[in-house]
Simulated scan of single mutants.
Amino acid sequence: MLKSTSPYELGATLYMPVLKKDALEYIAGRKLPKLRSMVLCLEDALLETDVLVGMDTLEKTLIRIGQVKEETEDKRFPLVFVRPRNLGMAKRIAEMAGIHNIDGFVAPKVRPGDYEKWVSAVRDTDLYIMPTLETTEVFDVGAMTALRDEFLANAPDRILALRVGGNDLMSCLGLRRVGKSSLYEGPLFYTISMLMGIMKSKGFDLTSPVYEIIEDGSTGEQVEQTWLREEVTKDVAFGFVGKTIIHPSQIDVVQNAFKVTRGDYESARKILAVDAPAVFKFGGSMCEPATHRTWAQRIMSRANVYGIVGEDETKAAYP
C-alpha cells in the first residue's frame, strides 16, 4: 500500500550525488534539519565509470536508512527518492535490500509510452514515481495530453508529483537562464502554463524547476535572494507544490514562500465549514464554497505542513 503523503511535503528538494560521502547525515536530518525532501542521483551526477560503485553505495545506504530510522524515534526524516539513469537501472534498484526505506523514484526524461513501463518496474514496491518532464515532447500539447492520459490509465496514485526539468527544457531551445530574471519572464512561461492546464486539471501536481543562480559570476559571492524569492512566490501562486534546489541557502527562501497568510487560512476555514453559506463575503472577496473548496483544501494542506506567516512554526505539523 502506498504511503499517505501530501505533495506539499516535498518543499525544497535537494539533488545529491549518490556517492556523496555524508549523504546519510542529510537523510538522518543531522545536516540541514529543515530539508523536507532529497534525491539521490545516479544519472547526471554519476560518471558512467562509477555506475557499479554507485549502485553498491546505494544498496548499502538503503539498508543503513532503515537502521537509522529504527535508532531514532519521534523524528521527521526528509522524503528520500532515487533518480536512476534509466528504466533498466530502476528495475535493479527496486529489487535491492532496503528499498522499502525510501519514498520513491524520480523517473528521468519521461516521454509518452514510458510511464506504464515505470509502473511495471516498481509494481512489487510501495514506492511513488515522480516523472520528470524535460524532453522536446514537453513543448507538444498533443504529446503532453497523451502522456497525461497514460498517467490516468496506469496507477495514477503512484505519482506524488510531476517534476518540470527547466534546465533540460531550456537546453532543448539552445538557451540557459542568465542574469536576474525569473522563470515567468522567460521562454518557458507558455510551457509551464500549458502543463498546468493539462496536468493539474486532472489532479497531477507539479514541482517547479531549479533556480540555478547562486553566485555572482564576477565576484563569486553568494547572490542576494530577491529573484529566487520572487520566483518561488510566483511558483506558489501558479500552483506548484515544491521546487528543486541546488544549494542549502535556498531552503528557507523556498519553504517560507509556502507558508499561508492568516487571511487565506481564515478564508479557507470558513469556506470548508459545514454550515458555510452558498455565497458570502470575507476579507474583501466573494467566497463561494462550491467553487473555492479545492483551493481551500489546498490552503489547509499547506498550513498543516508549513504553518501560517508570522506565527510560531511549531504549530505546523512538520516544523
Rank of each mutant, 00 (worst) to 15 (best):
V68S: 00
V68W: 00
K69L: 11
E70P: 01
E71R: 13
T72A: 03
T72N: 09
T72K: 12
E73C: 02
K75W: 15
R76W: 15
R76Y: 06
F77R: 14
P78W: 07
P78K: 04
F81Q: 00
V82G: 10
V82W: 00
R85L: 12
M89P: 04
M89G: 15
A90I: 13
A90V: 11
I93K: 09
A94L: 06
M96P: 01
M96A: 02
M96F: 03
A97M: 06
A97K: 06
H100F: 13
H100C: 07
N101E: 07
I102D: 15
I102A: 12
D103P: 04
V106R: 11
A107K: 11
P108G: 02
K109E: 14
V110E: 08
V110K: 04
R111G: 10
R111A: 05
R111H: 11
P112Q: 03
G113H: 09
G113T: 05
G113I: 12
G113V: 14
Y115T: 15
Y115L: 02
E116F: 07
E116K: 15
K117E: 08
A121H: 01
V122W: 00
D124L: 11
T125E: 09
T125H: 01
D126Y: 02
L127S: 04
L127M: 02
L127Y: 01
I129C: 03
I129H: 01
I129V: 02
I129S: 10
M130L: 11
P131L: 05
E134R: 02
E134T: 00
T135N: 01
F139N: 08
F139H: 10
D140I: 01
V141L: 06
G142K: 02
A143L: 08
M144G: 04
M144E: 13
T145M: 10
T145G: 03
A146L: 15
A146Y: 13
A146T: 10
L147P: 08
D149G: 13
E150M: 08
F151M: 05
F151G: 05
L152W: 07
N154C: 07
A155E: 04
P156F: 02
P156V: 11
D157Q: 15
D157S: 09
I159K: 02
A161T: 10
L162W: 13
L162I: 14
R163Q: 14
V164H: 05
G165N: 04
N167T: 11
N167W: 00
N167I: 00
N167P: 13
D168M: 04
L169A: 01
M170P: 14
M170K: 14
S171P: 07
S171K: 03
C172E: 05
L173N: 14
G174E: 12
R177V: 07
R177F: 13
R177T: 04
V178I: 08
K180N: 14
S182K: 02
E185L: 05
G186T: 09
G186Q: 06
P187T: 08
P187H: 13
P187S: 15
L188Q: 03
L188T: 00
Y190K: 10
I192S: 11
S193R: 12
S193P: 07
M194H: 03
L195Y: 10
L195M: 15
L195T: 05
M196H: 14
M196L: 04
M196Q: 10
G197T: 03
I198H: 01
K200E: 09
S201W: 11
S201G: 12
G203R: 09
G203H: 14
F204G: 05
L206T: 08
T207L: 03
